[in-house]
Design a protein around this nucleic acid. Structure first.
Length: 457
RNA sequence: GGAGAGGUGGCUGAGUGGCUUAAAGCGACGGUUUGCUAAACCGUUGUACGGGCUAAUACCUGUACCGGGGGUUCGAAUCCCCCCCUCUCCGCCA
């Protein structure tokens, strides 16, 4: 691992300022479509001023360097210049006088440089703050809309089950079967916590194993990653600033518990330059995910839909800076997730997420929603995003191409499976009239051949 | 947690205040030679942000960068302060 350089955060880079200068209208439209506030005109003005200051300061620094090296000659009797001057008949006193004069000029330049540096600092700070608010420009395919209601269904696979009896929800089923214990979870850790027991715990591990085996079979490298990471990684992947309230942050250590292994996987090559022939890098990790769910008070409080901790298999792709390639892998990671849902024989639909619902950093985003009988609707179980170079810029994640040029990678990620949320449709759709639950065929191998979960005697 | 040693270009490694635009070597790239390979010889060599000229990420040019930040000085890789990281040993612990 190469040493970390300029390891401060947040990194000021978002989009390329040159891109913003040259594509102002596209960025302006992105701000509008994503419903964000970002003072682009102010940003451009600050950028302008920033460059003026740099020009003046650089010029003065150049002059100052020149003076310093001259003073060095005047002050050093051993220098070639000094000896030549003496040989030409200059007196040491005359030399000293000239040297002092240069020194005086240098001092006055330094004064002006100091002023400029103060202004430079202030301008850079405002510049950075403004840059942090500039959104990634969404792809042309992205539907334009204000919120989730603007999302567009792309396709629907499988049929929601029609029951010939009154179905129970996952809490009723899981509690009666003794595989889900919300009360004791709350006793241990507060609201939005739970225990999975016996076959419930087995089922949880089985879906994770199925997901891992599926994704490994599709060429992804399994990685075990830290889930308490430096805050810098949260900035790098775009969760900070803005998402601090959603994360469990360990202030003392300036580290945060990740809400997804995407953070660790995407950031793991940060500050490195990869060889182009290493790409694409395809990684997958299973990790526990922690979410404070601040601002969601009272929302989805029932059951295990929205909870403070869960386990998730996440897939991440780092690829070349090529729009078509990035789109190709986006389709691939969505297909990977669909393969798992199809193996589990769960009905789902794929939604194109609209501009207002997709988040600042994303170029294109699709959610997969799985049918959940208790909600009488599809519920989000997967989220597939591509970021262009947004995350790579913040992480300083680059590659060297065959043409010797260094570029920022493109990054993408998607859920493979998240449990226990996925247990909601599994329990509810595989329930039997007697309250037992049939184990999906694809999971039986991971549960010692168990075919049916029944209440314990 | 305690004690010590260190952080210099892709890598190794010189450099304790100014003719240092960071030596030298390795590697990489280009070229010459060569039946091919190898060897030899010659040349090139990073990043970021600006400016000029542009079809250009080509070329010319400025500044900054020797772990990070601050200080002393006309001038800092070099001196001072704070922080971070790595390594070694000890302690504690899963």
């Amino acid at each position: 691992m190469p040493g970390r350089k300029n390891a401060y955060y947040p990194r000021p880079i978002m989009l390329d300022i040159k891109y913003i200068r040259e594509n102002t209208e596209a960025v302006r439209k992105a701000i509008r479509d994503k419903g964000l506030s970002c003072d682009l005109d102010r940003l451009l003005a600050v950028d302008d001023r920033r460059r003026q200051i740099q020009q003046e300061a650089d010029g003065l620094r150049g002059r100052s360097n020149e003076l310093s090296s001259q003073v060095g000659l005047y002050k050093n009797p051993k220098s070639k210049w000094y000896q030549e001057a003496i040989a030409k008949g200059m007196s040491p006193e005359a030399i000293k006088a000239e040297g002092d004069a240069l020194q005086a000029e240098s001092a006055s330049i330094k004064q002006r440089i100091k002023e400029l540096e103060d202004e430079e600092r202030a301008t850079a700070e405002e510049f950075r703050a403004l840059m942090l608010t500039v959104p990634q420009v969404p792809s042309a395919k992205t539907p334009i809309g204000r919120d989730a209601s603007g999302n567009v269904e792309v396709r629907r696979v499988g049929e929601p089950r029609k029951f010939d009896f009154e179905p129970k929800d996952h809490v009723q089923l899981g509690t009666a079967l003794g595989i889900l214990d919300i009360e004791r979870g709350v006793k241990l850790a507060g609201t939005r916590n739970y225990l999975l027991r016996g076959a419930g715990s087995l089922l949880h591990h089985a879906v994770l194993r199925l997901a891992m085996d599926t994704i490994i079979g599709r060429g992804f490298e399994p990685v075990t990653v830290p889930i308490l990471v430096r805050d810098e990684m949260m900035y790098g992947t775009g969760y900070y600033p803005g998402g601090e309230e959603q994360a469990y942050r360990c202030e003392r250590d300036e580290k945060s518990l990740v809400g997804t292994a995407e953070v660790s996987l995407t950031a793991m090559y940060g500050d490195e330059i990869l060889d182009e022939d290493m790409l694409p890098v395809k990684l997958a990790a299973v990790s526990t995910c922690f979410r404070r769910e601040a601002g969601a008070a009272g929302k989805d409080t029932y059951g295990i839909y929205r909870i403070h901790y869960f386990d998730k298999v996440e897939q991440v792709v780092l690829c070349r800076a090529d729009e078509a390639e990035s789109e190709k892998y986006h389709h691939e990671i969505i297909a990977n997730a669909e393969a798992v849902l199809q193996a589990l024989e769960l009905p789902y639909r794929v939604m194109a997420v609209c501009t207002g619902d997709m988040g600042q950093g994303k170029v294109e985003m699709y959610d997969i929603e799985t049918w959940m009988p208790s909600r009488g609707d599809y519920g989000e179980t997967h989220s597939a995003s591509r970021f262009g170079e947004f995350q790579a810029r913040r992480l300083n994640l680059r590659y060297k191409g065959a043409d010797k040029k260094t570029r920022f990678c493109h990054t993408l990620n998607n859920t493979v499976i998240a449990s226990p949320r996925i247990l909601i449709p599994i329990l509810e759709l595989y329930q039997n009239v007697d309250g037992s639950v049939t184990v999906p065929k694809a999971l039986r191998a991971y549960m010692s051949g168990m075919e049916r979960i029944e209440a314990r005697g």
